[in-house]
Nucleic acid binder design. Structure first.
Length: 201
DNA sequence: CCGGGGATTATCT
DNA sequence: GATAATCCCCGGC
């Protein structure tokens, strides 16, 4: 199994990348504590022109600084004062596109995820929703800026093929304040997967 | 089963 | 001082 190469992230179509990230594997290794999971739900954010993005209109602050980092960088921020949200930065340095990881399916280290979240290993909400993903994988905002080809957080491709009919699309969640851009069909998920957020897939 | 609202705090104005 | 790329519980049907 190989790490996803830099060229995967270094492209200008973040929406396409968000779609292609479905089925890929994310691994975290913090001090030997290893967890891995398959990505089952994502959202694309087109930095500059997207009202739902933290970097809309070139807004640049201490918080979203890492969105302007080179492709393949992790951007982690706090939402609602308590949730750690993991994003994958794409496109060239200084072009702040990113993909939010909204849900994953646990593969290895499920015990550890259960411990981190205080949930049962059979609980399908263990890694459902972006806040839970960060919690289960042990990700915190101080991990923001890590490079995804390094050894603490990285992505793998095990060759799992996503057929088009298996991918669902919808508007993004929790971005109602973004005007017209709230309606953009930039959320992608694997149909029928029990870890995908929302009532229906 | 479903909808409403409280939790809780970093961040920006 | 208000808001937020959320989550979970609780009450009502």
């Amino acid at each position: 199994m190989k790490k996803i190469p830099l060229s995967f992230y270094d492209r200008d179509d973040v929406v396409q990348i968000a779609k292609e990230l479905l089925g890929k594997i994310i691994v975290t290794n913090f001090g030997g504590q290893i967890t891995s999971a398959r990505i089952v739900e994502t959202e694309a954010y087109i930095g500059i022109t997207d009202k739902a993005s933290h970097s809309y209109g070139h807004r640049r602050t201490a918080r979203n600084e890492h969105m302007y980092s080179p492709p393949g960088t992790a951007y982690v921020y706090i939402c609602y004062g308590m949730h750690q949200m993991l994003n994958i930065v794409t496109n060239k340095k200084d072009i702040p596109d990113a993909v939010l990881i909204r849900a994953v399916e646990p593969l290895n280290g499920i015990d550890l995820m259960a411990k981190r979240t205080g949930k049962n290993i059979n609980d399908k909400t263990l890694t459902r929703g972006p806040g839970n993903v960060g919690k289960a994988l042990g990700i915190y905002k101080h991990h923001s800026g890590l490079f995804l080809l390094d050894k603490e957080i990285y992505l793998l491709d095990d060759g799992e093929k996503m057929i088009a009919g298996k991918i669902g699309t919808s508007k993004r969640i929790g971005v109602d304040g973004a005007g017209d851009d709230a309606l953009l069909p930039f959320r992608f998920y694997i149909k029928g997967n029990p870890y995908v957020s929302g009532k229906r897939n």
